[in-house]
Nucleic acid binder design. Structure first.
Lengths: 243, 243
DNA sequence: CGCCCTATTGAGGGCCCTCAAAGCTAGTGG
DNA sequence: CCACTAGCTTTGAGGGCCCTCAATAGGGCG
């Protein structure tokens, strides 16, 4: 795969949220990107690491997580192709959480040095990427409200809505509303702070309500407006409209 | 109060996390800052607003919050003097949450235009502020783990630890470990996603364990290491060490 | 003094947890 | 081709953490 192809998911993502002039694209094409493959559950970085690279997700799915004293794994975000989940490590040297693959994934490692160079050369690109990290923040905030203020079934519907809305925005879902997700029910449990058993019962409720079907690796949305209503979902926080 | 005095909490905050050269300080001193006073509960900005200013908190306390469908208020962060909680609105035009005062507060409103000018002139300052928003992100992530993965008493201890650690870093707490906080128990309930009644019982447990005393408006930490242990607290995520 | 907001305590109930066991699917190797 | 294993999913039963409803007490302020 050529460097251009590697950067393609990044362009698609950036153009979903901002306008990217040609000279900025030229700068991005000069980034040195080293491909790396990850197996299911493999850690990309671990809390305490001081990485010299940030990872652009090319295919598959990543999550950020941390482990609390009780031993529970708390997932704080899921990432789709085009995301750079640990972009923060350019400015915060020590990782305060871990990043791992959900299912098999391919990432492109970009040296911090290169990113720093790009940001200094183009304040516009820096601000687009800054904006990117601020949208991450908005997603974290929503996640807090989801876990703290909603019941299991509403929270589950909201989480699925977020994934679908983001998947739609980067073209991962066709009109058939089928979404290939390597998530296990344990992953959902760790994300919502609920038990595996309760996740299973909650998914069954959503299935019986005719909103979704769930097979391992494949989410199908049967009633998109209905799912959004069930999840108290308003996509405004994803800031998908270009400024 | 002169502009220099207004910017003082900002300098203190920035110097807690980074080195700020004199020419950057000069840039910051040129910011137009308009003072505004808020009463308890007053909204600074509301979800859906498109503000033209960002607010530097000068004195008092702010929180970010959102209201979910059930009517519950979910607080996603507390802010201390020196914070700029809605700095994001420079890059994300529409607010996806609200910011309100906890108790009486004074803020300095800074035009987005001025901030943009500063960021373009000094990439170093932009990156320090970017870093600032990334630390906010880290706090959100920790908050997710706190609500999703910890029991009420551990979560409460953790939240208090975070406030104390941040208060210490900006000089709001003396050696006596007494911290003036205008928080009510309802605020803590909205922050932790728990009921007011349970907050009250949880605080009583922490008091009886000899870790803190709690009077309305005044938190006293009796056993700082003990509180950190009770809260499963590791301050690394606050990134208080200068890079 | 009376009002309002906050804090405190009791009692009963529900959402979600833990423990446990069985079914299902895919991959492996004989 | 099929036994075997490992991981994920599904379902049942009982229990605990935290919720809601309710009432009293306390404190600041006009």
């Amino acid at each position: 795969m050529s460097p251009q192809d590697l950067a393609a998911p990044l362009f698609r993502k950036l153009e979903a949220i901002a306008t990217v002039p040609d000279d900025d694209k030229a700068l991005l094409r000069k980034l040195r990107i080293a491909t790396k493959h990850l197996g299911p559950g493999d850690n990309l970085v671990v809390a305490g690491d001081k990485p010299q690279f940030s990872a652009l997700l090319i295919s598959g799915m990543l999550c950020r997580y941390d482990v609390v004293a009780s031993g529970a794994r708390q997932i704080m975000s899921f990432h789709l192709p085009g995301d750079i989940p640990d972009l923060q490590s350019v400015f915060l040297r020590t990782m305060d959480h871990s990043v791992a693959a959900i299912g098999p994934a391919t990432v492109g490692l970009i040296p911090h040095e290169d990113l720093h160079h790009v940001f200094e050369r183009s304040f516009h690109l820096a601000s687009v990427m800054w904006r990117e990290t601020l949208i991450d923040s908005a997603i974290f905030r929503q996640w807090i409200g989801n876990i703290g203020g909603r019941t299991a079934i509403v929270a589950m519907a909201h989480l699925l809505c977020e994934l679908v809305a983001r998947g739609l925005s980067v073209g991962l879902i066709d009109d058939d509303m089928k979404f290939r997700l390597p998530l296990t029910q344990q992953d959902l449990a760790d994300a919502l702070g609920l038990s595996l058993v309760h996740i299973n019962r909650t998914l069954r409720q959503l299935r019986r309500a005719g909103l979704i079907t769930w097979e391992p690796g494949l989410l199908t949305v049967l009633d998109w407006p209905g799912l959004q209503a069930a999840g108290d979902f308003d996509p405004a926080y994803l800031h998908l409209i270009k400024r």
